[in-house]
């Protein structure tokens, strides 16, 4: 039987990716109705088998209570993890995600869900880090192009010579090429050349 998973994520892009991934693994994905509705009501109305929640969501505390102080809740939510799963919990916490199953669902079904959520959070973290790096590289490349243009105009030299000049400058100063290029642009702007 496929588990019905309520997915709560403050980040819409990550939520969409996670929903796809969960569906691929055969989970049925549910989303909370409306932020104006207390999560306790969504849990009662949707009656999920499990919950995956982003740790940045303040709604996490609601999951701690279900069944403990709300006798009207049909199915208490619990984070069933034995001591053997301590490392998995630490890993999930550092990735920024938590998972719960409701009472009646075999506790051993939590671990694969938690692992999947953790892996998905980490995957997205990695993609974003790579994208940031790619963006930075692109910006740096444009900076170096501009600096090269300034050197070419100032020294009336060709592109290869200007590039060699910038590289030597960077090596002599023990700085990255992009940093030196930035300095060249700043100086040119200050001198208005």
């Amino acid at each position: 039987m496929s588990l019905r998973v309520l997915l709560i994520d403050t980040d819409p892009d990550r939520a969409a990716a996670m929903a796809t991934r969960l569906a691929e693994e055969g989970y049925v994905v549910l989303r909370p109705a409306d932020p104006a509705v207390p999560l306790a009501d969504s849990l009662r109305d949707l009656a999920p088998d499990a919950v995956v929640i982003d740790l940045a969501s303040p709604d996490r505390d609601t999951l701690e209570q279900v069944g403990r102080i709300d006798p009207g809740a049909t199915r208490p939510v619990v984070m069933f993890l034995g001591h053997a799963d301590e490392a998995a919990l630490a890993d999930a916490v550092s990735a920024g995600v938590a998972a719960y199953v409701t009472a009646g669902v075999p506790p051993q079904r939590l671990r694969p869900l938690l692992d999947l959520a953790t892996a998905q959070f980490r995957h997205l973290q990695r993609l974003r880090a790579e994208l940031d790096l790619a963006r930075q590289t692109l910006v740096e490349r444009k900076t170096i192009e501009r600096a090269k243009g300034i050197v070419m105009a100032q020294r009336a030299c060709d592109e290869a010579t200007a590039y060699a000049y910038l590289r030597k400058l960077a090596m002599d100063r023990g700085q990255r090429l992009a940093v030196v290029a930035e300095q060249v642009i700043t100086v040119a702007q200050l001198l208005d050349v």
Partner: peptide, 12 residues
Amino acid sequence: ASWANIRDKVAV
């Protein structure tokens, strides 16, 4: 964002 976060982060 939540008390549960503090408890779990301190626990691990």
